[in-house]
Amino acid sequence: MTAPLLKLTNINKSFGPIDVLIDISLEVNAGEVLCLLGDNGAGKSTLIKILSGVHKATSGTVGMRGKIVDFNSPRDAGDHGIATVHQFGGTFPLMSIGRSFFVGEEPKKGWGPFKILDRKRANDIAVKAVRELGITRIDDGDRLVGGLSGGERQALAIARAVHFGASVLILDEPTAALGVKEAAHVLRIVLQARQRGIAVIFITHNVIHALTVGDHFAVLIKGAKAADFRKGERTREEITDLMAGGEHMAELEAEIAAYMASHDGHPPPVAE
């Protein structure tokens, strides 16, 4: 097998004395969905920020297609094909669909200093890209992004990333703020991106959503990778247990076992 598209090796990140990420190693292949699961504060967002060039790892390496890469800025990560879509997708609510789609990469026509923004082309491309992802309700590129539903905004942001040639798509809690129907739509779009050979890193704490689209799962607990498994290797209950402080549960079980061992096999008394 060829080198994975994205490979994290022994990533550590500390902010001052606090270790936020401890020895994280992960691999994502093209056309695969990696679900990153974890409770709030488990270090998911720090990990995304390292991948998208916002933070630098304290130690450890990020490799792409077998080569070590070094991101100095989000722009850098973007140039390497890593695109991040945040929970609320479109970040420019008062811009039109066409304009926001091309922020920083505006299509131009004309010559010299009189080059003008090609609004029609921007609108056409943006609308086409979103429709290709199955959002057929959008047909006017002049509509303001703020007027779209949460799912449509996610679709627009994903369409933008795909259009600009992202090979790794990081989705930060894309379904968290959505209703059931809209979430299903976004999940379908995730699968479409995967079908196009894009590596998707899907951050969520919804186990059902993760199991629906994921090929590969990693669970973060307190900054460390607690589990790393492929589709079908764990049941939903096991994963939920793991996420819902599986660690605390294990501690509790160990305490009970210790009590039983020292009390002739009697379980600890239960307070009535």
Binding site: P74, R75, T91, F92, M95, E105, E106, L117
Partner: peptide, 20 residues
């Protein structure tokens, strides 16, 4: 296209910078 930059900066400066 500078107009688009100005609108984007007012909308969300961090995202605008991240977009290059």
């Amino acid at each position: 296209h500078y107009g688009n930059w100005i609108l984007a900066m007012g909308g969300d400066k961090v995202s605008a910078r991240n977009a290059g």
